[in-house]
Nucleic acid binder design. Structure first.
Length: 562
RNA sequence: GCGCCUGUAGCUCAGUGGAUAGAGCACCGGCCUCCGGAGCCGGGUGCGCAGGUUCGAUUCCUGCCAGGCGCACCA
């Protein structure tokens, strides 16, 4: 399954190891017990070859020889028969540079075309079960830009991990219990009374958004004033139940329109109802990790390297959000996930150490929880920052964003930056249908390729059979550069998965599209030369496959026409 | 005050313990009798500051400066 680049790397590494080993046995080099962790990199500079290794730079201390000398000896012992290596040099401070025959990478093209939608799959995950929890917004309102970024990041990361050989579950944790819901209920109740012409005030800390007026109207249409005289608790519960399903439906809809689908919607309330929260508190109690102080029950977080202890049960007897979250994470591991990934906003980063502390207290490996902290989003329109405030209901929602700039641009822009970088989202740029917009640049390359094949069909031609095409006709620099880039795709996927770094892909795809455009501009695909045409069609088709697969991992469409 | 994130080209951002640090935008100048010009080609005095580790630091460590976010019996 590994791509040709990785294969080449492994074969060169093997040859290097053998050479050092043999030189050690023959006395040409001092014998070393173990080889250091050398790397085989693709040099930035073309002049430094197709691959280079720092092996000889890591050995001088152990061998008491200058690095270049070591390099020379290693090179003299290298056995590279069967590899498309044109020459090997020791250069600079002691790098060993490998220069390959220019066409070595063409062998990947038939493979790409054959694998088609599966090309780029790797086996980094080895079937490990991973859960990605993301967005998990309060189901009391609409999704904002922070949620949107989390949605784009989480869904792309999940897709990448899936492509990289993990068994992935996408999960949304619904905060449908606790203090916030209490306030939600009180706010709804106030709106309900107001609707019925009764004086009522929303609590100061409550939900002041006007959307609740609509919500309550819907509730009224269903139940009338029936709950006016009901017990307060019953009334609020009915209002909350109604409002939650309405809000949650809106959230689901917005996410669906954003191309984000979940496997599991996990209710916090269910943890309270099932006794899981109580159970995890008891478990921590048994382990001696709790103590009482001023009527509250505290978790000894400091014993796990956290700055301060944390309340699990308030003095009013109600468990905190933290208690439920501990129960939730215990539940995740009980379900057998090998790796649990959470995507949280920067405003929650303080929560990470105590969550890990709680997991350690429960006997789980805290390193199996990987929290991706995502920095905040600022929106720009017309060069001005778009002010947002939740209190006044003045914020751009995910729906509005998708409506304004489209799903593809929105998803691309959110994933374009690394999670730990503050994101300045330029609405004008995302909306512009011009060369300023990187999304269109990539999609345009894809559409162009599709157009070539449409043209071929119109001319009565058929797509060539990759196994019968002489790919060595592809000798132009632009052709080889593009083919080389395509062959990097599996490694890009592997790196994005290993580093939990979806933002690598937009960059890679942009570069790939750029190389295609250069190729397209300097080489005519369909020409009188049937053999060359066939070879170029394979290259174009392989490009189409890579672009399409890459865009799919980002949740961005690959249109055949634009 | 303490903790986390960030500081790279005019702007928005990539990047790496290595050999000459990149991309997009913006700006300037070129390119179609030809498969989609939403394209191509050319144009670059920049790693916040100061120390340290290293054969080698933009990358790792320490201090400082600047911005963001946290430091509730909220979530």
């Amino acid at each position: 399954m590994a791509g040709i680049v990785e294969q080449m790397r492994e074969r060169l590494a093997g040859a290097l190891r053998d050479a050092v080993h043999e030189a050690g046995q023959k006395g040409a080099l001092p014998a070393v017990q173990e080889l250091p962790d050398f790397i085989i990199e693709v040099p930035r500079e073309k002049e430094h070859g197709d691959f280079a290794t720092n092996l000889a730079l890591l050995l001088p201390r152990a061998m008491r020889l200058p690095p270049r000398k070591i390099g020379e000896i290693i090179v003299s012992r290298l056995k590279l028969t069967g590899l498309p290596v044109a020459r090997v040099e020791v250069a600079g401070p002691g790098f060993i540079n490998f220069y390959l025959q220019p066409a070595w990478v063409l062998a990947e093209l038939p493979h790409i075309v054959r694998e088609d939608e599966n090309y780029g799959k790797v086996n980094v995950g080895k079937g490990a079960r991973v859960q990605v929890e993301f967005v998990s917004a309060n189901p009391t309102g609409l999704l904002h830009m922070g949620n949107a970024r989390g949605a784009a990041l989480g869904d792309s990361l999940a897709a990448i991990l899936d492509f990289a050989g993990y068994r992935v579950t996408r999960e949304f944790y619904i905060n449908d219990a606790g203090h916030q819901i209490e306030l939600f209920g009180l706010s709804l109740e106030a709106r309900y009374f107001q609707l019925l012409g009764l004086p009522a005030e929303i609590p100061r800390e409550g939900y002041h958004g006007e959307d609740l007026i609509e919500t309550v109207k819907g509730f009224y249409a269903l139940h009338g004033d029936k709950y006016l005289r009901a017990a307060a608790e019953e009334r609020r519960e009915a209002l909350v139940r109604y409002a939650l399903q309405e809000k949650l439906a809106a959230i689901k809809k917005a996410l669906e329109d954003f191309g984000v689908h979940y496997d599991v919607w996990f209710s916090e309330a269910s943890l309270h109802a099932s006794g899981a929260v109580q159970e995890v508190i008891e478990r921590l109690q048994e382990k001696g990790c709790l103590y009482e102080h001023e009527g509250a029950l505290w978790f000894k977080a400091r014993e796990f390297g956290v700055e301060k202890d944390e309340v699990l049960v308030r003095s009013n007897g109600l468990p905190t959000y933290f208690a439920a979250d501990v129960a939730y994470h215990r539940n995740k591991f009980q379900r057998g996930f090998d790796l649990v990934i959470n995507i949280w906003g920067a405003d929650h980063h303080g929560h990470v150490p105590r969550m890990k502390g709680a997991l350690a207290a429960l006997g789980y490996n805290p390193d199996a929880l990987h929290v991706i902290i995502m920095q905040l989003v600022r929106l720009f329109r017309g060069g001005e920052i778009v002010k947002m405030s939740k209190r006044s209901g003045q914020f751009v929602t995910l729906e509005e964003l998708v409506e304004e700039v489209g799903k593809d641009a929105a998803r691309y822009f959110f994933v374009m930056r690394s999670a730990d970088s503050h994101l300045d989202f330029d609405l004008d740029l995302a909306r512009s249908q011009s060369n300023e917009n990187p999304v269109y640049y990539i999609q345009y390359a894809h559409a162009r390729i599709c157009s070539i094949f449409r043209q071929l069909q119109d001319m009565g031609g058929a797509g060539p059979d990759a196994s019968r095409v002489d790919l060595f006709l592809l000798q132009e620099e632009a052709e080889l550069a593009l083919a080389r880039k395509l062959a990097d795709f599996p490694e890009e996927v592997a790196l994005a998965a290993r580093e939990c770094a979806p933002h690598r892909l937009p960059r890679y795809l942009h570069e790939t599209a750029g190389l295609f455009h250069s190729f397209y501009n300097s080489c005519r695909v369909i020409s009188d030369d049937a053999a060359l045409t066939a070879a170029r069609l394979i290259l174009a088709d392989a490009t189409r496959v890579v672009l399409k697969n890459g865009l799919r991992l980002l949740g961005v469409g690959a249109p055949e026409r634009m």
